[in-house]
Every structure is written in C-alpha cells, then in structure tokens.
Design a binder for these strands. Structure first.
Lengths: 157, 157
DNA sequence: TTTCCGTTCATACCAAAGGTTGATTTGATG
DNA sequence: CATCAAATCAACCTTTGGTATGAACGGAAA
C-alpha cells in the first residue's frame, strides 16, 4: 500500500499527508466529543463533510477538465493567384511544345531572345524559331501580345 | 436547511437521497461491526472512503466545463483583378508623366510603337521618346521588362 | 522674366525582334 | 523500318525597337 502511494504523483502525496493530518484531527475531535450527547453522529457527520470536501478537491485537482468546444469560423481572404495554377485547358488548346512554353515564360519575364538562348543553352536561331512557332500557335505577331494573351489565359502567373 | 436543499438542482436532491441511503447503510454497518476489534476505525475509514468518492462524483457532475475556443479559418477566394486599384505609391516614386503612363499601358496591351502613335495621335518619334524616357525612369532596357515590372508594382492591371 | 519640365517631332544609327527557308538529329508511334 | 513531330541550328532579310542628339512649343514655378 505504501509503495503504491509513493508511486503516484505529487497530488497523491499531498492527499496522503492531508489524510494523515485529518486523521489526527479526527482523533482529537473524537476525544473532545466523546462526552457529548450524540457525539458519534456529529463526529460521523464531520467526517462525511470533510471527506466530501476532500473528494471534491481531489476531483478538481486531478480530473481532466471538461472541454466545451466553441467553434468560431473566421473568414480569411485569399488571393486567387497566390498559388498560381496553370490553366491546363487553354494550354492544351494552344498545343505549345515544352520548349515553346519555356521560351514564352522567359519572354514574360522580360528577357531578350539572346538572354533566353543563354538561359536555355540554345542558339539565338533556335529561340527565334521557337518564338515564331509559338506566335503562330497563339495567333499573335509580337512577343508583347503573346505575353499579354498568355497572362489573360492563365498560362503564365 | 431543508428548504435550502429543495431549492437546489437535481444533483443536489440526488446527493441528499444518496446521503440518506448511506446513513442507513452506515448505521447498519455500525451495528454489524460494533463487536469487532477496531470496528470504530474501520467504520470511519469506510465513511472517509465513501464520502471521498461522493465528493469526487459531485465535483465531476457540477464542475463547469472549461470552454475551449477553436477558431476555424475559412478560406474565401477573391479574384485577383476584380477590383484593380493602382499602386499610387509606386507610381509616384517612378514619377512617370501622363503621356509616359499612357504609352506604358498601351505597351502592356501588346501594341507596337506605331500602333500606340496612331492611338494617341502622335508621331512614331514621340512615342519612342516617351518610351525611352519611361525606360530610364523605371531602370529597364526593354519594353517587356517595363511591362513585367509595372505589373508586379501594381501600376498596370 | 527666366528657368525648368513635359510634350512634341525629326534624323540617324545600331540592336533586337520577327519571318522564311532549309537542314539535321532524335525519340516516339504505327 | 518508315514516318512524324519536336528540337536544334544556320543563313538571310525585313521590320521594329532602342539610343542619341537636337529642336520647338507651352505652361508652371522660381
């Protein structure tokens, strides 16, 4: 029994000490009230009250607090294009090849054909070819138009 | 005292009834154990245990549940360009003139210098001048860079 | 009034972009 | 294997864009 008590938590130890003190107190009460009429009942009532209090105290200390979950919905504004998702439909419609798309994306960032060629390890000629092919597919005549249309179609952020 | 008990809640009444039953039980126990050695201590221990249990029970029943507030964030999509508001701060910083801004906006729509000239009833030379001035002010070298930067700064939809 | 800035335009030159044709290689597809 | 699309590059040419310089005009500020 003693080992069990020692194994418990701090609360259990405190409870044990309190119990000991109370038992002493009760013993004293017993001696004091032994000559009084109905002393036995008064004594039992005191014990009942005190231990009820102890029980309440122990319960409040040890019991997991009941949780009442209050749900508050909070609306958060999110910009639609924060996570840019490519418009696959339009992209497929245009039928751009991998390289053409890459060139288009770099164009939109303001790079010149020569810079795009350097970036993709291509010759200027190749970039021009890709550019012209994608202009044809998009039905435009200038890179600025291609950029403008690509942004509106959601092909580019 | 009795009126106080009646004023309470259902739990209090149940507690009262339990108490009465227990008192009867205890009285019976007292009669049974009165002949046993240390009957008094056993009896008191029983009372202590029982009322501790009652206290715990009462505490658990009556304890106010702690409120746990859970905030659920609900995402609301907002179209990026539904209400385009020009970034006045950046616009002032760049110190673009009226004409330069007009040229920039038409550039962003994919128009050539000649088309811009026709649209604004200007000569090609004038458009070129405005273009170069705004390139200087924006610190760029190509129209595509100007467009890209202007969009990022929120000067253009 | 003078000065400054924006606007307008011209000329000239060079760089970049755009367009065309043709050729080669490579990987996938039937 | 034959074929086709994608990708690569070259050569050539035209158009457009960008830079530099200069000049004229008008309005606003010093």
């Amino acid at each position: 029994m003693a080992s069990n008590f020692l194994k418990g938590k701090k609360h259990i130890i405190i409870y044990g000490i309190s119990l000991a003190i109370l038992l002493v107190l009760l013993n004293w009460l017993k001696l004091r009230l032994v000559i009084i009429d109905h002393a036995f009942e008064v004594y039992n009532g005191a014990i009942a009250l005190i231990f009820t209090g102890i029980g309440i105290w122990v319960a409040l200390k040890l019991a997991k607090p009941k949780e009442k979950i209050v749900v508050i919905e909070k609306e958060v504004m999110v910009e639609k294009n924060v996570g840019f998702t490519m418009n696959e439909t339009e992209l497929n419609r245009l039928n751009l090849s991998k390289r053409e798309l890459e060139v288009l994306q770099l164009m939109a960032q303001g790079l010149s054909n020569q810079e795009i060629a350097d970036r993709l390890f291509l010759s200027l000629s190749t970039v021009k070819t890709h550019a012209n092919n994608l202009f044809d597919k998009m039905g435009v005549e200038r890179r600025t138009q291609a950029i403008n249309q690509a942004k509106q179609l959601g092909i580019i952020p």
